[in-house]
């Protein structure tokens, strides 16, 4: 028994059939609890008023926008090294999810920025980095869409993901260097005391957990769709040859 057995599509389908309802159910519960709690049962910030509540969408989606790319990098590496097709398909399935998170983070940020900074958009390092991340997601998805042969597409997108990750990091530093920025520092971090009070912190954690599970649910669902599409293709190919 090793973890790699789940790289077999059939095993993966069986496993995900079992996991999916739980993941989906928990996602709904956590998001409903977290968002309702956050939106209606937390006090307004003394400076920012109720606009502060957008963090319950903004922070988790921004975190997941980056984590999704990291997950795609990991699955691309697994594909390159071990050539498990489910891994490549999972990376393909995750890209639109990550793009959506990135767009949510950008949109909620703009909504918050308008009353707070007085502008929808500023060329701030964090904002700019996210814009660049959006471009990377678009490029990655476009490359998948452009190539017909699935193995070729998996190989090339994996290479792009690897190289893209290096350049995304470089861009992050370049952008930091270029403009010191308007955006506040990270709200949450592991190594320093949270600069956020518990009243906001607990519902935020619930929302983050909800977004993580939302990501898991979406990626499982989309990977299953990709696997089914491949199965269909394989059956058609067999029909044609037979």
């Amino acid at each position: 028994m090793s973890i790699w057995q789940y790289a077999n599509p059939k095993k993966f389908m069986v496993l995900s059939t079992g996991v999916l309802p739980w993941a989906a159910g928990l996602t709904v519960i956590l998001l409903v609890v977290g968002l309702v709690w956050g939106f209606f049962f937390t006090p307004d910030d003394y400076k920012q008023g109720s606009t502060v509540k957008i963090i319950y969408l903004h922070v988790p989606s921004a975190m997941m926008a980056i984590n999704t790319w990291v997950m795609m990098l990991a699955t691309s590496l697994i594909w390159i090294v071990r050539r498990h097709h489910v891994s490549a398909l999972a990376a393909k399935a995750a890209a639109p999810v990550g793009l959506t998170f990135t767009l949510i983070a950008l949109a909620t940020g703009a909504l918050w920025g308008q009353p707070m900074w007085g502008t929808w958009w500023a060329w701030d390092p964090r904002l700019t980095s996210f814009l660049i991340l959006t471009l990377f997601y678009f490029g990655y998805m476009a490359l998948w869409a452009a190539i017909e042969d699935p193995d070729t597409a998996a190989d090339l997108t994996s290479i792009l993901c690897l190289v893209g990750s290096v350049f995304a990091l470089l861009s992050r530093y370049a952008v930091n260097f270029w403009n010191q920025g308007l955006h506040q520092g990270a709200t949450l971090s592991l190594d320093k005391e949270e600069n956020i009070s518990d009243v906001f912190w607990v519902p935020l954690l619930v929302c983050i957990a909800g977004f993580v599970l939302l990501f898991v649910t979406m990626v499982l669902l989309r990977t299953r769709t990709e696997i089914r599409a491949r199965r269909l293709k394989a059956l058609l190919a067999r029909e044609r040859v037979a």
Binding site: R230, A234, A237, R238, V241
Partner: peptide, 15 residues
């Protein structure tokens, strides 16, 4: 000539 796809490729693991 391979007239029937045998279970070598990945896609066949699905079919």
């Amino acid at each position: 000539r391979a007239r029937v796809i045998q279970s070598t490729g990945f896609d066949e693991a699905f079919a």
